[in-house]
């Protein structure tokens, strides 16, 4: 119960920090790093949930763009190489969990009879 409460509080904290990041990023940060966003405001509220969820990545990318830490070539390096690993891992995991699920599945023990092990005082 304590762990569950701590988890819920941690999620709330995550969301609150995300809200602060969203407020700063969507009002100030965006105009600094993306010229296509200048003068475009209607779409910005759409981005709030995303910032709430992945604000650490948002801060990391914002810092990268501000400091020009990332080279231009990275954008064009398609990550198709991960595809094989991802789908094989997913396939194996699904097959494993489905088989495990069937293996532990129980059927109602309709044939099991109650067994009296000792008699009571009132019998």
């Amino acid at each position: 119960m304590d762990a569950a409460q701590a988890l819920v509080m941690a999620m709330q904290t995550w969301g609150i920090i995300g809200g602060l990041v969203a407020a700063v990023f969507l009002t100030i940060g965006m105009d600094r790093i993306d010229e296509d966003a200048r003068g475009a405001y209607i779409f910005r509220p759409l981005l709030i949930p995303g910032v709430l969820l992945i604000w650490p990545i948002v801060l990391w990318r914002w810092w990268q763009i501000e400091t020009e830490a990332a080279g231009w070539a990275g954008r064009y390096r398609a990550v198709r190489g991960w595809y094989g690993v991802s789908v094989i891992a997913m396939s194996i995991a699904i097959v494993a969990v489905v088989i495990t699920g069937f293996a532990v599945r129980q059927t109602w023990p309709a044939d099991a009879e109650p067994v009296q092990l000792s008699t009571g005082d009132s019998q």
Binding site: P109, A112, E113, P114, V115, Q116, L117, S118, T119, G120, D121, S122, Q123
Partner: peptide
């Protein structure tokens, strides 16, 4: 209370 003994039950 009327004790009925010890039982092994399934369910």
């Amino acid at each position: 209370a009327e004790p009925q003994g010890r039982w092994q039950l399934t369910g």
